[in-house]
């Protein structure tokens, strides 16, 4: 698979030391980078440091990038490797099992929303607009989506941002985070449901 032209051009500009290309790339992936790094260390400052290091590793290693995979994939792999190494060295690795119960357990929609037969007791209120453009048009909706993403548990946040915001393939995202395909699906499912739930107070009652 060849790189899309825009990405190819971006790599060229970056290799030539173009600051705007660099900032463009950073802006595009910064949120996901931080989210991924945070799954390896519970420490926000360390996660930020790992991301900064990764950007420099990307820039200095650009001549080794073989343009057969996407730049994005290559960057996230570097990040995951760095984060693993750093987290181990700093002995702040959060064992995945520590997240398991909190993140994987429980239903996507709170049990209290259903009656004893599993039917809606408190159904979702209809939204006036169910188009992505319609939702994103409103600044308060954009802000609430950002806030809801930040409130997610670390691995749910990372997988949601990688898959839905960045458009990384499922297998690739699971590999970056070092989780199974099934786990990846479960976390993503919970995360999406949580973001929808967070939008209810803003959009419901149409």
């Amino acid at each position: 698979m060849n790189l899309p032209a825009t990405e190819d051009a971006l790599v060229d500009r970056l290799a030539a030391g173009d600051e705007r290309a660099f900032l463009e790339l950073v802006g595009r992936h910064q949120r996901a980078m931080l989210a991924v790094a945070s799954t390896f260390t519970g420490n926000r400052a360390l996660a930020e440091e790992i991301v900064q290091e990764t950007w420099m590793a990307v820039v200095t290693g650009l001549d080794r990038f073989e343009r057969r995979s996407s730049l994005k994939t290559w960057i996230f792999r570097i990040l995951a490797n760095r984060a693993r190494t750093r987290a181990t060295r700093e002995a702040r690795t959060v064992p995945f099992s520590a997240f398991d119960e909190a993140e994987d357990g429980g239903p996507a929609v709170p049990t209290s929303r259903f009656d004893g037969r599993g039917m809606w007791a408190e159904p979702p209120q209809r939204w006036a607009d169910t188009s992505a453009a319609g939702l994103l048009e409103r600044a308060e909706v954009r802000r609430e989506i950002d806030a809801a993403i930040e409130r997610l548990p670390p691995r749910q946040r990372a997988i949601l941002v990688l898959r839905d915001v960045e458009g990384v393939e499922a297998a690739e995202a699971a590999e970056v985070l070092g989780i199974s395909a099934v786990n990846q699906r479960v976390l993503l499912h919970r995360a999406r449901a949580a973001v929808r739930l967070a939008l209810e107070p803003l959009l419901g009652g149409a």
């Binding site: 607009d129 188009s131 992505a132 939702l135 839905d164 999406r192």
Partner: peptide, 16 residues
């Protein structure tokens, strides 16, 4: 419909 909309909105979310 709401979950679909949420997923699509995430895909077009502006950079923070």
């Amino acid at each position: 419909a709401q979950l679909r909309a949420t997923r699509q909105a995430l895909g077009s979310l502006p950079e923070p």
